[in-house]
Computed example of a mutant assay.
Amino acid sequence: MPIPLLIDTDTAADDCFALLVGLLDPRADLRGITMVAGNVGFDQQVDNAFLTVGLAGRLGEVPVFLGARDPLERPWASAEDVHGDGVGGLKRPDDGHVASEEHAVDAMIRIAREHKGELRIVAIGPLTNIALAVRKDPEFAANVGSLYVMGGSINARGNITPAAEYNIYVDPEAADIVFSAGFADVVVISWDPLTITDAVFDQGRIDRIAALDTPLARFFVRANQATFDFDTRVGLAGSSHCDSLTALLAIDRGYVTAESRYRLEVETEGTITRGATVFDWQSDDNNVTAIEKVDGDRFYEYMLGMLASTPVAE
């Protein structure tokens, strides 16, 4: 039976590919896409989401809900220097589809109630919407089956500051609320060490994707180019694909080769450590499972197979 899934996203580059996982994998029943302020301008993120849904041939089937346009307490910080507009300059067709009138937080609460104990939420942006749902509905955390969070670093290596990963840095207060809310199953896909060891696509891998020459493969290469250029410029071996990995693991944990339980706390007050995540391996009060290693080659082959598909005609 397909898994009820909801993806909470700041759609740009790898978020688009994560959406494709949720949209195209037959094991997933994607109940909605909720938008949160993050990578690029909010309206651009919405266009990027609809563009991706259209490429997957799912327009009119999977609703898009608009959520928080700002973090809880702080000004928004973009990642446009990393992603550009998030889709390589592609423009969304005038398809006539619009976002739902229902607010993302209300939709999240409703869908969790409708699929109590079964819904898996994939949170691949700042955690603002999730925190607002926790605040609004005391039963929300208990209704969610599993929460998969792309965020943080086990080894305190950040990607926006020396200490902080972007998604947590943008809204650390929201992250603090979420990790303290009592979700039964919180799974964290971290930037370091996981992403930068097992979810990086080097030039050879990108070339294999380009050689597929399908609509999805061409979209991937174009939307990914700015991120690839940035990541390699700062010393990674290629572009990072943590969001796609998070979506896949929410559907299939079989790719995991190492994980551990931790007590995760978020720094909200530090001047130079804002958004840092502290993974306490000595605690008897653990609140997350952190994925520490996956079969990166198998993950890449999954993505290659997905991008080789042709869900819509050119």
Rank of each mutant, 00 (worst) to 15 (best):
236 L>C: 05
236 L>A: 05
236 L>E: 01
237 A>D: 07
237 A>G: 12
237 A>R: 05
237 A>M: 10
237 A>N: 08
237 A>L: 14
238 G>Y: 00
238 G>V: 01
238 G>M: 00
238 G>Q: 00
239 S>K: 00
239 S>G: 04
239 S>M: 02
239 S>A: 04
240 S>I: 04
240 S>Q: 06
241 H>M: 03
241 H>Y: 06
241 H>N: 01
241 H>A: 00
241 H>T: 00
242 C>M: 14
242 C>N: 02
243 D>E: 15
244 S>A: 13
244 S>H: 03
245 L>S: 01
245 L>F: 10
246 T>D: 03
246 T>S: 05
246 T>C: 13
247 A>G: 05
247 A>I: 08
248 L>Q: 05
248 L>F: 08
248 L>K: 05
248 L>V: 08
248 L>N: 01
249 L>N: 04
249 L>D: 02
251 I>N: 03
251 I>C: 07
251 I>P: 02
251 I>W: 05
252 D>W: 10
252 D>C: 09
252 D>K: 08
252 D>Q: 07
253 R>P: 15
253 R>H: 12
253 R>S: 11
254 G>Y: 14
254 G>P: 12
254 G>K: 13
254 G>A: 12
255 Y>V: 06
256 V>L: 11
256 V>Y: 13
256 V>P: 08
256 V>K: 07
256 V>H: 11
257 T>M: 10
257 T>Y: 12
257 T>V: 15
258 A>T: 08
258 A>R: 15
258 A>W: 13
258 A>S: 14
259 E>C: 08
259 E>M: 11
259 E>G: 07
259 E>Q: 14
259 E>D: 11
260 S>I: 08
260 S>P: 06
260 S>C: 11
261 R>Y: 12
261 R>D: 12
262 Y>S: 03
262 Y>H: 09
262 Y>I: 06
262 Y>R: 03
262 Y>F: 15
262 Y>D: 02
262 Y>C: 03
263 R>G: 04
263 R>A: 09
263 R>T: 05
263 R>H: 14
263 R>P: 04
264 L>K: 04
264 L>A: 12
264 L>R: 06
264 L>H: 11
265 E>R: 15
265 E>D: 14
265 E>H: 09
266 V>W: 08
266 V>F: 10
266 V>Q: 01
266 V>P: 01
266 V>D: 01
267 E>W: 10
267 E>N: 15
267 E>H: 12
268 T>R: 05
268 T>H: 07
268 T>A: 07
268 T>F: 09
